[in-house]
Design a protein around this nucleic acid. Sequence first.
DNA 1: ATGAAAGCGCTAACAT
DNA 2: ATGTTAGCGCTTTCAT
Lengths: 328, 328
Amino acid sequence: MAGVSVASVSRFINSPDKVRAETRERIRLAMQECNYRYNYVAKVFATQRTQTIGLVIPTITNTVFADSTRGLQDEATRRGYQVLMVNADYDPDAEGELVRHLLERQVDGLVITASDPHGAIAGELATAGIPAVFLYSTLSEGPVSSVGIDNERGGFDATAHLADLGHERIAMLAGSFTSSDRSRHRYDGYRRCLSERGLEFEPGLVVEIPYGLEHCREGVARLMEAAQPPTAIFASNDLMAIGVMGELRAFGLSVPRDVSVVGFDDVLMSSYVAPRLTTIRQPVYEMGRRAAQMVLDALDRGGQSVPRHLILDHELVVRESTASLRRA
Amino acid sequence: MAGVSVASVSRFINSPDKVRAETRERIRLAMQECNYRYNYVAKVFATQRTQTIGLVIPTITNTVFADSTRGLQDEATRRGYQVLMVNADYDPDAEGELVRHLLERQVDGLVITASDPHGAIAGELATAGIPAVFLYSTLSEGPVSSVGIDNERGGFDATAHLADLGHERIAMLAGSFTSSDRSRHRYDGYRRCLSERGLEFEPGLVVEIPYGLEHCREGVARLMEAAQPPTAIFASNDLMAIGVMGELRAFGLSVPRDVSVVGFDDVLMSSYVAPRLTTIRQPVYEMGRRAAQMVLDALDRGGQSVPRHLILDHELVVRESTASLRRA
DNA sequence: ATGAAAGCGCTAACAT
DNA sequence: ATGTTAGCGCTTTCAT
């Protein structure tokens, strides 16, 4: 239509300076006239590269994942990559499914917040043949790279803060261990703190619930209707901590007067709720950025690289939801 | 490798029953041996159909969009489609960009929460040549289908609730009009209510801010530091309403004792914050489901169909953040 | 600066 | 039940 070959059109699209101005104009006109639309799928098919990194997150409902995704997205965009995000709803089986799906879609790299980085997913990633990194998990070894914080120490620090305030009956409301190794590691830290402080561990003070605000009611009920209810609750993440505070109020209990609550993540919302939530801050934007960096760097090096395990610093942020124990 | 043609392999993948059991086994073995991975991109390229519907949302940080996306996702999955979600960060220019991007990616249909369905995006969609629907907007006509609620009436109802409680100085903290026609329509309803109730409209009582919790501080400051501060605030959405409540507390003000607050959306979080938020509920899951339904139905009919404009019911949910005006 | 042509991995129509 | 083959729209190498 423009009287040129497809090669010239391709050049026009990808490096306009390689085609004469006059030809450029002819092509532009023809494109306009026939309402040309570039077919990205054909390009990917031809080049075998999508310039896309696949991202698997546990849920879209907890905004931490939105925040880390932003970091990942920014870094990817900066380096000419896109990100294809899918959520697994905290379901380990779905994770494998989604990874396969992303692989079929020819993503160039993968970052995943997995339920269990030691589970089946590890093998899946190992054979994928593209750079992959685990995000959020605490890993110090293994064939696939990772970036996260030390969740065990985070759990320890949260619990220690409560112990420092004089609490002895400290409960943990944990997101289900099978759907999150972070929850398990935070629990490990909780246990270690209890033992180091000489506090007795009571199985009844740990309740494991599925992730999500809507499951907090039952968890809080189990905790507070016991013969000896806790005076402080450590929740696996801020979302659930906010859920806990809501349910505590429904029980006629006041935070922090009757019970102290600490969360994990330091989601923006946590500075806005009443009372403002004490929590463990994770540098999530930075974590997302670093994860992208790792897969992009590997890609730059031709896909091959030694696995790295990056553990960033977390930080206790004391706000209004925790207070000294009032002795009866 | 299995001694069969590519056609048989294709059949094996897409309709295994069309190939003899013995051949099936040979293929399976060969696949295993050479670590075969299906190339989805090639399939899309060959068939010219992605079985994917593109979704553009304003932000991933407000969980309403997560909720409507779930409805959309469920319906799509049920009918064998996937959804490719991208977020525009409330930027009208980004919306156009993303739509073009999705089109290049050959999505079969499009659903978009647009800043302004009457803006440039409308033309973009009209020429796209694939089914598209606007989600969340109040539209009763136009070439592209839509599903939403009556945002003007929603804004009216929110304001009327405050007026019914005796408030006369009712402010609106609005998400920027240029990035959301919903905000504009809710504002229109606010204005109509004021006028119907014989309440004087004061420009100083309307402040427009960018979306996001982090911008609420300035908005609340502008409102409450005025000579005659409002006794009630209607916020464009729940997220901002929660932000408002947080900032009001920072000002030493109590909700609802000193000022009443009403939001919009009825996000799950709104039942957990303190005080529990009074708001206008949108049936967002259903909205997402219906949007998917519309594009999928159009696709089933071969892409052609008359535009439909669906307006679902909203509902005022009265909780704890609003109270009768205490006269000085 | 431009053109010719091979090739990316699959599907689908047709033939056997 | 299986094989043959054209073709999807682009990139890229090699010629000119």
